[in-house]
Nucleic acid binder design. Structure first.
Lengths: 169, 169
DNA sequence: CTCCAATCGTTGAACAGATCTACGATGAAG
DNA sequence: CTTCATCGTAGATCTGTTCAACGATTGGAG
């Protein structure tokens, strides 16, 4: 069984959550810096919280992808989550062992595995959603509804703009 | 000479920038997820761009801290940037070798090193700022002035809220 | 049909970066 | 003066990512 990293969707080393210290004004004034720093914090917290409940954030990401309903092969899942295929293997091993997911040979192309949610997997996903919600809520505490919506909108727009730019190549 | 990672301020592995793929709606709807993902992208781009110009983002962070004027010891710098002290050593070695920074024994406590910007360091910082600005501008392209300000404000508020919570312990 | 190249999932080795430990030098407290 | 903590540094270790290779399978070219 291989362990992998992943935030919602990318991966990197997450050490203990460290105490943030007063930042220089120059960096505090820098949107990109804040974005990177908070993104990191968000990821660290998410990993931590999931672990505390005995789950894994990586599993959540994968389950979320599967929940979209489209028939997924491992390669597709890995690409969607920007994961190395080798890393996904380990995550799926765990999920399968826990009975949350099923791997079947794709009859139309026997090289592939079709991965699908089991009922238990769907149930688990629901539970995991509540964790995510709780984390987010705590993280965004200082923002009111309106500010949160605006933040989400801004992030989404930036994200989609990036995707578009990539696809134009 | 030791290589370290660091984003503006935290650290993790930054592989090649990968092509983002269509995300499941569930994840796209999740602010925390977007935050983590974009933060990661921002970091990756920043590292990449700095490298392309022959600089290092880590150096920028350190120079930015030093520019605040307070006399800094290595320990303080490392803590501010959430860096392992050992990692900082390598960064400072590079900076010193490039003549951007000076390490001097603190006469009042000869265990310490006082680190300070040289004139060349200040100049370099100016150049680096323009890189950061360019990156940010490209990244936030789809947002108008107002939306950018709102985004920055939201991020800052979240960041400061987190700092406060930590300090209350 | 037969080869050959490409793709799938999988494994394990190689690598990179973060963390931890230990050290010599120095300082602070008793 | 002794003991203990802190500073910067160096090196070992650990963890997670990336890469290369494998058997199985497919699709296409001849």
């Amino acid at each position: 069984m291989k362990r992998a990293t992943l935030i919602p969707v990318d991966m990197s080393t997450i050490p203990e959550l460290k105490q943030p210290t007063a930042l220089p004004a120059e960096l505090r004034a820098c949107t990109g810096f804040l974005l990177a720093r908070l993104g990191y914090a968000m990821k660290a917290i998410t990993i931590q919280e999931f672990e505390r409940e005995g789950f894994s954030m990586y599993q959540f990401s994968v389950l979320a992808v599967l929940a979209e309903g489209v028939v997924e092969t491992q390669a597709k899942i890995a690409d969607t989550l920007t994961l190395d295929r080798g890393q996904l293997v380990g995550i799926l091993d765990d999920l399968e062992e826990a009975g949350l997911v099923e791997r079947r040979r794709d009859p139309s192309d026997r090289r592939r595995h079709t991965v699908s949610l089991t009922p238990a997997g769907k149930k688990r996903l629901v539970k995991m959603r509540s964790i995510v919600e709780r984390i987010e809520d705590s993280f965004l505490e200082p923002l009111d509804e309106k500010a949160r919506a605006a933040l989400h909108d801004a992030l989404l727009r930036v994200a989609e703009n990036r995707d578009q730019r990539f696809q134009q190549r």
